[in-house]
Simulated assay, not measured.
Amino acid sequence: MSRHSTSPAGSAPTLREVLETVEQLWPLRLQEPWDASGLVTGRPERPVRRILFAVDPVAAVVAEAVAAGADLLVTHHPLLLRAVTTVAADGFKGALVHELIENGCALLACHTNADSARDGVSDAVARAAGLGATAALAPHPADPEVGIGRVGDLAEPVTLRSLARRLADAVPATAHGVRVAGDPEALVRRVAVCGGAGDSLFEEVRAAGADVYVTADLRHHPASEAREAASGPRAGGTPYLVDLSHWASEWLWLPVGAAALREALAARGRDVEVRVSALRSDPWDFRIDHPHAQTAGGTA
């Protein structure tokens, strides 16, 4: 039992104990300087019996947590990433803060600290791609063995089409789908990944010698410039690009994070129900494809 434990073995932990456990799994020192991970609402001395994991602290997710009787909502994205001067309930973020507090549900954000930490968001994407051993794509200054993104080699080369299909089968369905840039029949083996928006890491991807880069939220100009650079006389057309939904790429970590926290609390002798939200918080509802759109298989 941890020397920090304040309640009998087998009982619910306090929020303070949960935060101590989270710090061991996803240390706040690993978050990016601009980030706002950490506790948003909640009294540290309150017991925590039910925990819900989700990507986004949106109204539907907060309502789900309250309806489930959750004492703690753990989200990947912070609710208050940018500075605010009020949390009055007449604004949508303030309304969520009030809803959480009035129903005794704490809110904890594990954002870029969970991206960088071992078995974090990009590790989940790497497993979905079929990678085994990986290294950090952008090593963290405090711990070069972890950091943003991962890069590694597949056991055997596969076609770009096969890799994209493998990822499409692994992530939840979204209107975004899976977009791919490159020859669908090209063989790829070295894969770089970054859960969430990763178009700031193209230099690291090229330096790692990746055949393909799997990420999300690829904007037009960074993607276009990456393709132009890849078509140069010495680039060989790589890295190819696989663009996932931002929400779907990060959702892959939720079952992993929930299981890790449940097991770590159990190791402290604490009994907690931990589950993953069933709601899709991807902001897009549907997509209309042009009848002559080009797909990996030809004309749609």
Rank of each mutant, 00 (worst) to 15 (best):
183 D>C: 08
166 R>C: 06
211 D>Q: 03
210 A>T: 08
115 D>C: 07
233 P>V: 08
230 A>N: 14
115 D>I: 06
214 V>M: 04
233 P>A: 15
238 T>I: 13
126 A>Q: 00
123 D>H: 12
207 A>G: 10
234 R>V: 13
242 V>D: 04
133 A>F: 04
191 V>N: 01
171 V>A: 01
166 R>Q: 14
233 P>S: 04
173 A>H: 10
116 S>H: 03
153 D>E: 12
231 S>C: 08
222 P>C: 05
220 H>A: 06
227 R>M: 06
138 A>H: 02
214 V>A: 15
149 G>Q: 14
223 A>M: 11
222 P>F: 08
232 G>Q: 09
216 A>Y: 03
162 S>V: 13
226 A>V: 02
230 A>F: 04
179 R>C: 03
213 Y>Q: 01
161 R>M: 07
223 A>T: 13
130 G>Q: 14
150 R>H: 10
233 P>C: 15
224 S>P: 01
142 A>Y: 11
191 V>Q: 01
159 T>C: 05
227 R>Y: 07
198 G>H: 07
191 V>R: 05
217 D>F: 05
187 L>W: 01
220 H>G: 02
116 S>R: 00
121 V>K: 00
186 A>Y: 01
192 A>N: 10
145 E>H: 09
238 T>G: 15
204 E>I: 07
175 A>P: 04
152 G>M: 09
167 L>F: 08
151 V>R: 01
177 G>S: 13
166 R>F: 04
129 A>R: 11
136 A>N: 02
147 G>N: 05
112 T>N: 01
175 A>S: 15
208 A>E: 15
178 V>D: 00
196 G>S: 03
185 E>V: 05
237 G>F: 07
222 P>S: 14
189 R>D: 03
133 A>Q: 06
135 A>G: 10
143 D>A: 00
167 L>D: 00
141 P>A: 14
143 D>K: 01
174 T>N: 11
185 E>D: 15
199 D>P: 11
229 A>C: 12
159 T>D: 15
126 A>P: 00
221 H>S: 07
225 E>H: 08
145 E>P: 01
235 A>K: 08
205 V>C: 10
129 A>T: 15
146 V>S: 01
154 L>M: 06
204 E>A: 11
237 G>I: 09
